[in-house]
Design a protein around this nucleic acid. Structure first.
Lengths: 114, 114
DNA sequence: TCCATAGTTCGGAAATTCGGAACTGTTGAT
DNA sequence: ATCAACAGTTCCGAATTTCCGAACTATGGA
């Protein structure tokens, strides 16, 4: 398994963030992760209620989130701990993540985030 | 030519907005439009400085922006007047557009927007 | 009517996405 | 040490999407 890539804060691109969060499934995953206390594992986040995301798709979603700079993933034993980089990110792009999650939160079917 | 589709305010989806603005070319177009006083025409916005967007690609960019709810297009004689729907949009998704344009604006090479 | 201009639509090559199946790496049991 | 179970990744082919040149459409002016 290749080492996981995480962009440095200054290398994070807005287009990558927006692209990553233009998929409601990824937003749902990210929002759950933002709400979770410990680091969320992949499989714990696979169940969207109306649909269970296939493993390979999930893995890809996490990759997109990770490489865009939205999350930090770290192997811990057999599972993967994921956490948001929202504090850092808010420093780089003030208000961006909050505005996006709020926008999605106004729609039914997604966890409220405000 | 088919009539142009514009979503009603309440039908505008955050994923469509994010997707539309996850392309730096579209952001550049949108930002110029937001800065323009009158309605900007397509061809007036094709020149990105380092690259001129082909007509068909431009047309498609405008379609994406329009159908996501970001802009309003209206035929006026031979040309097309485009204007942002940012006031409306800010009502629906408070702070979203501003945060996005600000995020892009912090990078070199794109017009500052704040 | 005929031409020029602004933009749209068509079509096909290239790139991207999706997800099942196979694989890798880690832990715990025998 | 070997094996099995499990979490997640990688591979790869099918389906979808993107990109853009060429052809087309709509409008206005000569």
């Amino acid at each position: 398994m290749r080492p996981l890539f995480h962009p440095a804060l200054e290398d994070i691109k807005p287009e990558a963030i927006l692209y990553a969060l233009s998929d409601p499934e990824r937003v749902a995953i990210y929002a759950k992760l933002a709400g979770a206390s410990g680091g969320g594992t992949c499989s714990a986040l696979a169940d969207l209620g109306d649909r269970v995301i296939p493993k390979s798709s999930l893995s890809n979603h996490f990759k997109v989130l990770r490489e865009s700079g939205l999350i930090m993933s770290e192997r811990q034993g057999v599972e993967m701990r994921n956490q948001t980089r929202c504090t850092e990110l808010d420093e780089r792009f003030p208000g961006l993540i909050k505005a996006i999650l709020t926008a999605y939160g106004q729609l039914p079917g997604l966890p409220k985030t405000d």
